[in-house]
Design a protein around this nucleic acid. Structure first.
Lengths: 230, 230, 230, 230
DNA sequence: AATGAATGAGACTTCATTCAT
DNA sequence: AATGAATGAAGTCTCATTCAT
């Protein structure tokens, strides 16, 4: 067995009798708009890659979960790596764009905006189905440099830019005094990474109240940046 | 079909007799104490698993890097999963124990101790060869729940306890006023996780000055906790 | 270590494109109905297992003899053991059913019926391709208890029941006087086992005239059971 | 796994933790007379080969059961095949020699001698540790032609000769009238083969009263050969 | 477009055999 | 002589990918 140290709980393959009966009962899947079919496949792929990681994920399982035949996958994606890339690229989310636009329009206090942002990002990093993307990047990113680059550009850099903009405005408005968040915007989102990782690894052992932690973080970091009620 | 009444799958004569085949001159590795051999294997395994992740790592590569034959691996580890577990378990480090003892003996300011701690942990998480362990846990941990548990107990829980102790003492001494770090010690180490991940994924795209970031973090978080020079 | 981010282990281009490599011209086998393919595989498996026994048989050889690739075997049988079981189960033959029906319809003398039965069984045990099944069961049966059970139920028990019925009828008709064959029907077929084994082991050293032996057996055993011409 | 369809109940190899600790506690075995050591090894080998057949038997298990190290085996036997051959050759038993001598000296009735012979052979074929040799020959004989020859010469031919001698004398004495046993002495021992096989395969499913069967056989076959109380 | 049987490279693991101690 | 760590060929089984239908 290749690597089934922890057996996946996907569809079991072993007929009890040891005889394998090929030719399942699946009917020919109905023709779908390519874009819709792509959507279905990517959703299935996210689930399977999230459960197994890249190398251990089986194309067969992706196909099964998408309700199509193995061969059909290859009509939409060149190969497994392309599917993985497609998955990550596709999951890059409108959240950032939304927040960028909201920031531009926002007139309220930075404290409130930050609270809003954390809530959005926690949603994204801890509860959305896309939360798995983060773990996948952590685990496989080093072996997909092009993908890490892409992810950096599309997600990380934009996110950090957004945070810098927030900091810059807060400084300019006199809400905070420290430029630490301008120099290292990572400090503002670091707890989100902790939350994402924790949910993946230690949730069962020791649950974490993510919201409370993020509230505490907001409080600490704002005070730490020299927050002064405007 | 060739006669297989007397199969011979022992070491090939050519290899055994010391002939040199072009491109592969490996001799029989010298006999080693089991503990030493184990050490050699684990070092090799760390390198290979770090580079490839669990599923994509090849036992063959581990063996080659350890300078031994494939079969020898299995004299020391039941299978690939056991090797991986052995790797993680073995890498649990004295750093925490050291810091725990140092904290007990430390009489200086919490600020200084925190600075010291960050420097130690950054060393561990960003520069030590064991830094890969963190990424491996991030990537594979969900598929090795027993290992995640172990890692939680031996590393995470102890680390968080240490941080709680630091916070409690600082509060008691009147150095800080907020109990946020007592409730969520994760906030103190979150940037270390960021650093570890960044080095793995984005180092090439956008280097990060980890020391400077950690200094900024210390400054922000201490102020955020209500730091007052004692 | 070579880059394995995008491993390729699909069919090699050379093979897929129909190039001919010297010494191995195998083309992709034509698609077959699962039942037909199964038949082909089992025939090949019988040959290979018969030649080598279970442990020494190679799946590769079964595949080659079936004219398919290794992997195809596993589309039809879970593993090697399942293939072996399928082989034995499948070989359970209509001979017994036929004889059971013939006995019910037979009105001639028991002597004649027994002669007929021996001829049939000798065919089965010494000349049919299924003769190997017997030796396989002898050699491997102890390591496949479920299979031994199955074989007992489907072949041995039914065969002995048939022999008991023959004995009972002969007694009732007054053709014989001894109930030894009723109590130990095994005695009637024991020479068939000898024949099967002899052909496998000593044929080359010392050929055995199976027909003559069975004729002698019929003569001796009938007289021994108290045969009296009806 | 090579073929562990039915796991041997030999010493388990899997440490629960997955870590393998080489360097057992076995002390260096005391020096033994080569002949004695050979004896110990062959006894161990019989047990292991009987349980697993040739291909699936492990030299390691033989060594362990003999209480010696793997390497030591090779001081006494060239290789695995030689060990197997040694096993079979060595197990050729004095029973035949004894019976040959007893026949020469025997003055009683053939019926009594036959009863005695059956009892001896049943002991050999069903209860002695050497009973496994028969199954081994059945299972592996075809792949060890030299061994099958040897076995034929040393056991089968001699046994059949003995039976022919018995028949010849009985005919000459007028105890029987048929020469069927002279032409096919196999008929006399066929039930022993059945007994040996039955014990190996069907004992658990359906026990067989071997003694009673052999008594019935003696009765039937003697009567069948035209037995007349002398 | 969709299917899924067929393919075969390759990974893990086993174990007969060797040989330095 | 005895040992057992070391070796590596070989075997089973997996699964990404292809292609005839």
């Amino acid at each position: 067995m290749r690597d089934r140290a922890i057996p996946s709980n996907g569809p079991s393959r072993a007929a009890a009798s040891g005889e394998v009966s090929p030719g399942g009962t699946r009917r020919r899947a109905e023709r779908l708009e390519p874009a819709q079919r792509r959507r279905v496949i990517l959703d299935a792929a996210l689930a399977v890659f999230a459960e197994s990681g890249f190398a251990a994920a089986r194309m067969q399982d992706v196909a099964a979960r998408a309700g199509i035949a193995k061969g059909t996958l290859y009509l939409h994606f060149e190969d497994k790596a392309a599917l993985f890339e497609g998955l990550v690229r596709d999951a890059v989310d409108p959240v950032l764009g939304t927040m960028e636009r909201e920031l531009a329009a926002y007139t309220g206090s930075t404290r409130d905006f930050l609270t809003l942002l954390f809530r959005h990002l926690a949603q994204e990093a801890v509860h959305s189905p896309r939360r798995h993307i983060i773990r996948l990047m952590l685990g496989e990113g080093e072996r997909f440099p092009a993908l890490a680059d892409f992810y950096y550009r599309e997600v990380v850099a934009r996110g950090l830019d957004l945070l810098r903009a927030i900091n810059a405005r807060a400084l300019q408005r006199g809400e905070i005094t420290s430029d630490a968040g301008l120099r290292f915007p990572q400090l503002l989102v670091a707890p989100l990474l902790v939350a994402a990782v924790w949910e993946g690894l230690f949730r069962r052992t020791e649950p974490l109240d993510v919201s409370a932690m993020l509230d505490a973080h907001a409080e600490v970091v704002l005070r730490g940046l020299g927050w002064r009620e405007p």
